[in-house]
């Protein structure tokens, strides 16, 4: 837009805003405090002793104690849970991305009878929440598929329930790629499968990253399905956090340290992929 026409309005609003600006910053501060307060309290609580927490629950660490975090980092279970969470999330993400882009390709770029009906299958899939199927899923996976207490037993159903959203996000993305690309490659004698491999896959990188990030975070944070399926050494971090907090309920500082260390991977991943996550969610909302 031309800045010339915009400037008078902007100047006027800038002059008017200064008073309300303070209000906006004040409200922002309150929001930040309420949002981050519980998280920071947990992080700082890990640096205190239980005696400190008992004496003054709302206080700051004084002196700072590092043994809680050190104990968690030396706890082999923590690393076992961490490994399980990572492997299950990677498996889930890989299956979702590969199967999702494969399914989205013909739905986006082939013309055939029943295409919309086929797409509708995925749209309807959105209406099947995983919770509904959780008990029979538990039965099928442990008794019929023999995958109880395995990484795949959690990863495959998670991928299956993530697929509808993945296809719904990826299809418009693939449709938006210009059709000239396809025509040009056809003229060069490339088959549709060749087009998929050599042109469509490289170009749809951003879309795949978006759905991949959503699948990864979803799997990393999942609780219900792992709770029913995984035992002992196969548990994931959320299960570990829940167990630790109920088994060591007297050790508040230890619980805070364990919880904080468990949230770090998701937070780092989020900060690195923030744009993608937000884009993905937006994509889901806009369709």
């Amino acid at each position: 837009m031309s800045t010339a026409t915009a400037s008078p309005a902007r100047r006027r609003s800038a002059g008017k805003v200064t008073g309300s600006k303070i209000v906006v910053y004040a409200i922002s501060l309150v929001v930040v405090a309420l949002t981050m307060g519980p998280v920071l309290y947990g992080v700082l609580g890990g640096f205190r002793t239980n005696a400190q927490i008992a004496a003054d629950p709302a206080g700051l660490p004084g002196p700072w104690v590092f043994s809680n975090y050190a104990n968690v980092l030396q706890n082999p279970s923590f690393w076992q849970y961490f490994l399980n969470s990572t492997i299950i999330a990677v498996l889930t993400t890989a299956v979702v991305v590969v199967f999702g882009i494969m399914a989205a390709y013909p739905l986006a770029r082939y013309q055939f009878k029943g295409r919309e009906a086929l797409f509708l299958v995925f749209v309807i899939g959105l209406l099947f929440p995983a919770t509904v199927a959780i008990v029979p899923l538990f039965i099928l996976i442990t008794q019929n598929f023999g995958m109880g207490n395995t990484w795949w037993g959690v990863a495959l159903p998670q991928a299956a329930f993530a697929l509808p959203m993945t296809v719904v996000i990826l299809r418009p993305f693939l449709m938006a790629l210009p059709k000239e690309l396809e025509e040009a490659s056809m003229l060069d004698g490339t088959s549709r499968i060749g087009f998929f491999w050599r042109i469509l896959l490289p170009l749809s990188g951003p879309g795949m990253v978006t759905v991949g990030v959503l699948a990864f975070v979803g799997s990393w944070n999942a609780y219900l399905l792992p709770l029913l399926l995984l035992r002992g050494d196969m548990k994931t971090l959320p299960l570990g956090v829940a167990d630790f907090s109920s088994e060591h309920s007297a050790d508040t500082a230890g619980v805070f340290a364990f919880t904080t260390l468990a949230m770090i991977p998701a937070l780092v991943f989020f900060l690195a992929m923030q744009k993608r996550i937000v884009n993905g969610l937006q994509g889901a909302v806009k369709g």
């Binding site: 949002t35 609580g45 907090s245 989020f270």
Partner: peptide, 21 residues
Amino acid sequence: TIIFVPYVLAEVIAGVVWFQL
């Protein structure tokens, strides 16, 4: 970024922290 942080945390982790609070 800050406002979005709670959404990214696992419900379990948020739950355990709030349980203590």
